Measured scan of single mutants.
Amino acid sequence: SKIRITWGDKTWEWDGDDEEVWKRILEWARNLGDEELWRHVKEWVDK
């Protein structure tokens, strides 16, 4: 399956939905430097 994140007018996609993928997404969000996006992603990961 895919994980799709839409933020503003951008959309990103990742293949898979296991823990490793979420770790990569969390790292990606942090590297993007958008605090609010990172917080949202972290909330999803922690669920």
Rank of each mutant, 00 (worst) to 15 (best):
G8T: 02
E36P: 06
W44G: 01
K23S: 11
K2G: 10
W38I: 15
D34R: 02
I3M: 02
E19A: 12
W12K: 06
W12S: 03
R39M: 13
W7C: 02
E27Q: 14
W28I: 02
L32K: 11
S1Y: 13
V45F: 15
I5A: 01
I25H: 00
E20S: 13
V45G: 08
K23T: 10
G33A: 09
G16S: 10
R39L: 15
V41Q: 00
R4D: 05
D15W: 08
E20V: 10
R39Y: 13
V45N: 07
K23I: 08
D34G: 05
R4F: 14
G33F: 06
E35K: 05
V21E: 02
T6H: 09
E19I: 14
G33W: 04
V41W: 02
G33Q: 08
V45R: 04
R39S: 12
L32C: 07
D18A: 08
K47Q: 15
R39P: 03
I3D: 01
K42W: 14
W44F: 15
D34Y: 05
V45Y: 15
R4E: 13
T11N: 05
K23A: 08
K23Q: 13
D17I: 05
E19Y: 10
G8E: 08
G33Y: 05
W44T: 07
D18E: 11
T6W: 04
W12N: 04
K42Y: 12
G8R: 10
D34M: 08
E43D: 15
G33K: 09
E19D: 11
T11V: 14
T6E: 12
W7Q: 02
D34T: 03
V21D: 04
L32H: 15
W22V: 07
V21Q: 03
K47L: 15
H40Y: 15
E19F: 11
W44V: 14
G16F: 10
E27P: 00
V41T: 01
E36S: 07
W38V: 15
W22Y: 15
G33L: 05
E36T: 07
E43M: 04
I5D: 00
L26Q: 08
D46H: 02
E36F: 04
A29Q: 01
R24E: 11
E13W: 07
D17V: 06
D34N: 12
H40N: 12
W38K: 11
N31I: 06
E13V: 10
W38G: 05
D9H: 06
D34P: 05
W22R: 09
E35G: 04
K23Y: 08
E36W: 05
R4I: 14
A29N: 00
K2I: 10
V45I: 08
L32V: 13
R30S: 14
I3A: 01
R24S: 13
W7K: 03
I25V: 10
E36D: 12
E19H: 13
S1T: 13
K47E: 13
I3P: 01
E13Y: 09
G33R: 04
E13I: 08
S1Q: 12
K23E: 12
A29L: 04
K47M: 15
L32Q: 15
R30I: 11
E20D: 14
D34S: 07
K2P: 12
I25P: 00
D18V: 08
T11A: 07
K47N: 14
K47Y: 05
G33S: 07
W38N: 09
W12E: 04
G8M: 10
R30W: 12
K47P: 04
G16C: 08
L26W: 06
W12H: 08
E35Y: 07
G8C: 06
L37V: 07
R4K: 14
D17R: 09
K2V: 13
S1N: 12
K47D: 07
E43I: 04
W22H: 10
K42I: 15
W14A: 02
S1G: 14
W22L: 09
R24T: 10
R24W: 06
W38D: 05
K10T: 10
E19T: 12
E20R: 12
L32N: 08
S1K: 15
K42S: 15
E20M: 11
W38Y: 15
I25W: 01
T11I: 10
I5G: 00
L26S: 06
R39T: 12
R24Q: 14
H40G: 15
E19R: 11
R24M: 11
E36Q: 09
S1A: 13
W12F: 11
H40P: 03
E35M: 08
R39F: 12
V45E: 11
D9R: 01
I25Q: 00
I25F: 03
A29T: 03
E20Y: 13
W12T: 05
K2E: 10
L32P: 01
E43L: 04
T11L: 06
I5K: 00
E43R: 04
A29M: 03
W7E: 00
V21F: 03
K2H: 12
R30M: 11
D17W: 07
E27D: 12
K23C: 03
N31A: 13
L32E: 11
E20Q: 14
E27Y: 06
L26D: 06
E27S: 08
K2W: 09
K2R: 09
D46F: 02
E35I: 05
I25A: 05
E27F: 05
L37W: 06
I25C: 00
R30F: 13
W44L: 15
E35L: 08
L32A: 13
D9Y: 02
I5P: 00
V21H: 02
D17A: 13
I25M: 04
W14Q: 00
L37F: 14
D18R: 08
I3T: 03
I5R: 00
E13S: 07
L37H: 01
E20F: 12
V45W: 14
V45P: 03
H40M: 14
R30A: 14
G33C: 09
W28N: 01
K10C: 08
E13F: 07
L26P: 00
K2C: 06
K2Q: 10
W12D: 01
D34F: 07
R4C: 11
K2F: 11
T6L: 05
I25L: 05
K10R: 11
D17Y: 05
R24Y: 07
T6P: 02
K23N: 13
I3L: 06
H40C: 09
R24D: 12
I3W: 04
G16P: 08
K47I: 14
G16E: 09
D9M: 02
W22D: 03
D15Y: 11
K10D: 11
T6R: 08
L26F: 05
R24F: 07
E20W: 08
V21N: 06
R30C: 09
R4G: 05
L37Q: 01
W12C: 00
W22T: 07
V45D: 04
K47S: 15
V41P: 00
W28G: 00
K10G: 05
W22S: 05
W28Y: 02
